[in-house]
Structure formats: C-alpha cells, structure tokens
Design a protein around this nucleic acid. Sequence first.
DNA 1: CGGCATCCGTGACGATACTG
DNA 2: CAGTATCGTCACGGATGCCG
Lengths: 224, 224
Amino acid sequence: MPREQQPATRPARRRSYDQFCAGARALDAVGDRWTLLIVRELLAGPRRYTDLHADLPGVSTDVLASRLKDMEQGGLATRRRLPPPAAAVYELTERGHGLLPVLAALAEWGAPALAERRPTDAVRAHWFALPLLRALDGPGGPAGDGVLDVQLEEGEFHVRTGVREPGSAVYGDGPADRADARIVLDAELCLALGRGEATLTEAVRDGRVEVSGEGPLAAGLRGE
Amino acid sequence: MPREQQPATRPARRRSYDQFCAGARALDAVGDRWTLLIVRELLAGPRRYTDLHADLPGVSTDVLASRLKDMEQGGLATRRRLPPPAAAVYELTERGHGLLPVLAALAEWGAPALAERRPTDAVRAHWFALPLLRALDGPGGPAGDGVLDVQLEEGEFHVRTGVREPGSAVYGDGPADRADARIVLDAELCLALGRGEATLTEAVRDGRVEVSGEGPLAAGLRGE
DNA sequence: CGGCATCCGTGACGATACTG
DNA sequence: CAGTATCGTCACGGATGCCG
C-alpha cells in the first residue's frame, strides 16, 4: 500500500515561497499558472466547468480541475450545485472577488502590450470589460450607476457600474437581463478608453460610440 | 539536425497564454514563478546577483539567472556593469518600476495571510516597506516628502515618500544615505498601518512609534 | 569570490483518451 | 457534461563545476 489514503483535504499544499511578505503570500495563493485568468473569468459571474474550459484556450482539463479545487480549498471560489437540468457552477467568494484590483493593476500595466494583435491570440468580448470599467468608474467617469450592455465586433458583454458590493459580478458575458443602457463601439476604442487616451464623453460626441437607452445612465453617457 | 541553432536572443519565449487581453499579456511577462518577487527586490534599488539570491531563499541559481535574462529581454530590468572592484548590478527600468501598483495590489490582498507567522518563513526588513508606504502615501498620510529611515526588530530599511518619478527606488534595504527622519516601531504595527487599522499619527501619539529627526518630515510625523 | 552554466531528480504542465 | 487517467515533455529546485 504505497500510497496513503488522502483525506478530504488536498494532499500536498502547493509549493510555497515561505516568505513573511504579503505579496509572496498572495502569490502562494494565486501565483500558479492559469489561476488569475480563472479568476478573471469568474469575475464575469458564475461559470460552469465547460464554459471556463472554452474561454481559456490552452488549459488542460486536469489543470483546470486542479486549479478549481485549489481555489475552493483556498477560499477563492465555491462550487454550487444547481438543480439537475443544469450543471454545477463555480463562483467567486468575497475573498476571490477581492482580487479585482490585482487584475486591474495587471491589466493596466499590460495594456501597452496590446498594441500588436497576434494572429494566434484568442479573444473574448468580456475581456474588454476591465478597461471599460476603468473608464466608467474611474475619475471623469460620466455615468450614473447601472447596468450597461456593450456591443463589440468581437461579441457582447455587460458591465455594472458603481458597484462595490463584494460577491456580485461587476461584468458578465453576453447581454444583461435588464440593461439600463447600451453602447456600440469597437475594441480599439475600448482599449483607448481604458488607457485614458480618450474619454467616453468625447467618444460619444465624436460619434465613435452609439448610445441607446432611456434612463439616467444613458443620459449621462450622452453627456447629460 | 532536429534542433535549430539558436541566435543570440533567448531561444524560445516562455509559454504564452496567447490571449488578446491586457491581464494575460502582463502574466506572459511577469507570471512566471519568482519574477514578481525579483521585481519586489529590485524595487528596493539596484541589487547584485548574489544579493538577490540571498534575499530570495529557495530560488535556484539557474532559475534566478534565467529570470534576470528574461527580465532584461522583456525590458523590465537592465544589467549595469560597475567598475571592476564592484560587481554588476541589476536595476529596474521605468517599465519594470511600473509594476509597483501590481505588487501593491497583491500585497494588500495578501495582507490577511500574514496573520500567522510560520516558523519556516523567511523575513527581510524591507518587505515591510510596501505596507508602510501605503500608510505614508495613502489618504491620511501625514508626512511631507522625504526619506524616512525605519528601524524594526527584523532590520532596517528606508522609504522615500511622495515620489512619483519612475526609475527611482521608492524604498531600499538598510539605512538611507541622508534620511530626513527616522522611526522605530515593530513589524506588527507596520502591518497594521498597511491594513489601515491604525494611522501613523495615532501610533505616534500612543508611543508605539518613536520619531527622531528635525526637518518637516519628522515634524509632520509627530503631528505638526 | 561572484556569476553564472551544467547535470540530474522530481514535479508541474499540456494533450489526448476515457469514464460516470 | 464534468471531470479522471495516462503519458510525454518541460520547468523547477538542489548541487556541483567552471571561469573571469
């Protein structure tokens, strides 16, 4: 019997840096390959295993399963069983949701690397939500709070502006159930907004963003 | 001839996520094991290979050398040759220095994990610089600009407050050449300050921080 | 002696196949 | 659909050796 039976907990903790440093501790938890990208996906709301696998091209099934278990054990995510017709979904805990600033900082730093778009690059529409949120919730953000549908050539997603309740998704793939406004623009502009090279009100004035909707959010986007 | 001859540039770029996403691009550059911790070390100023190896217990020599080359090639760091008595040093480029917000976000998220101090944990004094800087430069930061020497039981380091010129170290190991003020406190308080659970002025008033120095920075720390 | 390069054992990773 | 099993490959960690 060479292999001890492993208890309910995962057998061996992942390799730790063993440093009394907050940054090193954070990397112990989320520094493994794919982990932060899984968090990015889950920031869009609850996702099924298959959804995650589809939106993370290149990750192998066992690594994805292993990371999800690690994240469960680490308190980053939970697995929730849905009534039988539907499958189980993974969703971030409040602690996992707290990684949004980390991803935002990484995305801001990595933004210049998006200058070139390699032919091998995968794209998903909701990957543009983070830069757009930066433009919406950041300084000079013109909009009131609400849910905004965003239509790109690459697809559609929605963002929830002005939200600070942890645990609730700040953006999501596809259209929202009830959107307060809707904009149509292209990805390039979306990135420029995130880099702060343009403001949303400017872009609306220049006609590079089409705004539709009736409520205060749409009005705010149109510049009052 | 199965293997192509490899040119002067590094043979194969590290495995990329191949995603058109700023966060994924950032992780392509700094997502490898040890890379962000090397950045953390270099944020303290130019360091020699041996210094880095000493302050990063567990990293193997070849991985450290490989990461430093990757960082050179990626534009994060440069290697500068010093006149013969001294050895070469590595220092961050402006781009590399731009990772400070990423490390700050990671450190803030990882701060709760410092509640327990494991016996296997390595400690270096300057690892406490980031939380302290958060207390100094953040809102309610009482201090004027200047260089502050900090004495912990674990060692001594210094921080440069109110600096936003990229490329200049914001903190460093050991005492500064010319410090405008000096404080003595313990690591626990340092972490509490970083978590925002206490303010520096409070702690000074309670006698948990000893302040010495004459200039405006010291006066500011003492509460005018 | 500092700054790596080389070698080697182990474990993590990626692709595919397979199962409840 | 949601993973587990298997396997080849590569990255990592540790030790040692070379070279200025």
